[in-house]
């Protein structure tokens, strides 16, 4: 069962309350998205760590029901 953009955004925000999340549906099939996530929690973290934080927020769906999430993470100054 693919995911919809709102569900992805809700899960990310649950784990990263200050996150600003922009999601683009790449294929319209519910499992290929591009997302840009901006959060103060990323500050001082490597890109790999930042992406792992987002994957953790998605609680194992990444690579499962969510086949592809082209992810860009930005550390906000807050």
């Amino acid at each position: 069962m693919p995911m919809d953009a709102r569900e992805i955004e809700t899960m990310i925000k649950a784990a990263l309350p200050d996150a600003v999340v922009e999601i683009k549906d790449l294929a319209g099939d519910g499992d290929h998205y591009a997302a840009t996530v901006t959060s103060g929690a990323f500050k001082g973290k490597s890109r790999v760590q930042q992406h792992q934080m987002v994957y953790a927020a998605l609680q194992g769906r990444m690579g499962g029901v969510l086949h592809a999430l082209a992810l860009t993470t930005l550390a906000s100054e807050t």
């Binding site: 790999v48 992406h51 082209a70 992810l71």
Partner: peptide, 8 residues
């Protein structure tokens, strides 16, 4: 060392 996936 793990560098990253496609995006990174």
């Amino acid at each position: 060392e793990f560098v990253g996936g496609c995006d990174i």
